[in-house]
Write a protein that binds this DNA or RNA. Sequence first.
DNA 1: ATGCCTCAGCTCCTGAGA
Length: 258
Amino acid sequence: MQLATWNINSLTVRLPQVLDWLGANRVDVLALQELKLSDDKFPAQAFADAGYQAQWFGQKTYNGVALLTRAPATAVVKNIPGFSDDMARVISATVDGIRVIGAYFPNGQEPGSDKFDYKMNWLRGLRDWVKSELEQHPNLVLMGDFNITFDDADVWDPVGLADTIHCTEEERYHLRALVALGLVDSFRLFPQADKSYSWWDYRDFGFRRNRGLRIDHILVSQALKTHCLACTIDKSPRKNERPSDHAPVVLTLDSVRR
DNA sequence: ATGCCTCAGCTCCTGAGA
């Protein structure tokens, strides 16, 4: 079984690339972030033709998330229950006996800004909810664009970017607190190349120079940890003419007993 | 240097992303 997450920075622009990628990578679940379209514009039929059912939570211009699945997705929940939010950032469902949460974490802009405060509040709301979700669903995956690096190994220039957005101690504290609920960063369960990143700035040839950050993550519950076989970042979509600034992250699991 | 790309939108500039 394979699960993947990909911030595609506009589904309108990237739909052909997503369909190509799904054709080559028949993952069981793909979580998408930054659809940047309203619900009525979601291309459900195109995914159905490709063999994928879709659950989506769109928003005009910004945000928007979806779960594409080969098997039916049940008990679909949008955003964080108990946390009031006017942005479409989270969609969760049960697929093949696994509770899957796909999330687009707030960017936060600048430490100290209103948007940074919103990010911190959102992280607290997420953690309170994920704690109760874990109690109900031992088999749980939380994946998406976290907009937070774990540590300096996730940062191309840890000195120059120290204490800047995605790299602040306050953000990393929240990420560790999330993990402390009983989750594990599946990427680091396996040997990885140095300077492995999931996002590169469009500007200044960021990808060509590998000036990137690892901010897209797949966290798995303790019950799933022993089922993990591999976790990789797939840079192949970067070969497209107009790639997303994020690359998909893919987790391979062996069969999970329900 | 409050920018370098990219995308959306009441579109020919601005806000946001990260």
